[in-house]
């Protein structure tokens, strides 16, 4: 049963991601991205990371994707604004190289995959409490530094978006 759900969610995730990059209509692409996030949330649940799965749904599928949709609709892109393929060769090269990378990853997974250790999880793994604890003890520095990252990103967004005051 577990295996069945995993295969279903994994296929859904990959298929939705493929749809995201092949869809011409950006709104559809975003909707497929939401589906991909939901499929990945299921994978997180299977890994006992319940809290991360909930965050995945609330933050990514919920908040961020709504922003994406808003912006795409505000921009009101027409079909012809996407432009054609100027480098048809590039597409083939990209597909070929991506396939090569995927092939390598599959080989490694088949070769080494069975040897991955099964670690017994601690009591409250994946709970809000344990994640909070690890964020404020072991991962205190990256956690705090992320606030600097957000500050830099906000400053950058304001600089690029505000209207020009001189000239």
């Amino acid at each position: 049963m577990e295996m069945f759900i995993f295969i279903l969610a994994a296929i859904a995730s990959v298929a939705c991601c493929l749809m995201v990059i092949t869809q011409k209509n950006p709104v559809r692409a975003v909707l497929f991205l939401i589906m991909a996030f939901v499929a990945q949330a299921i994978l997180f649940v299977q890994l006992s990371a319940v809290f991360v799965a909930a965050l995945q749904i609330i933050v990514y599928a919920g908040a961020i994707m709504v922003l994406f949709l808003f912006i795409i609709m505000l921009l009101n892109l027409r079909k012809d604004e996407f432009g054609g393929d100027r480098h048809p060769f590039q597409k083939f090269a990209a597909v070929a190289l991506a396939a090569l990378l995927a092939f390598e990853l599959v080989i490694v997974a088949l070769r080494d995959g069975s040897r991955s250790p099964s670690v017994s999880l601690p009591e409250n793994f994946g709970s809000v409490e344990s994640i909070g604890e690890i964020l404020f003890t072991k991962y205190l520095l990256p956690f705090e530094a992320t606030s600097i990252l957000l500050m830099a990103a906000i400053l950058g967004a304001v600089v690029l978006a505000k209207k020009r005051l001189d000239d």
Partner: peptide, 26 residues
């Protein structure tokens, strides 16, 4: 001394640079 710290540092550096590259908005 940890890959997570390196990653956050890399992102801080890069995000600021992305904006700086486009600083002449006109």
């Amino acid at each position: 001394a940890d890959l997570v710290v390196f990653f956050v540092g890399l992102e801080i550096m890069s995000v600021a640079l992305y904006v700086l590259a486009g600083f002449r908005r006109s």
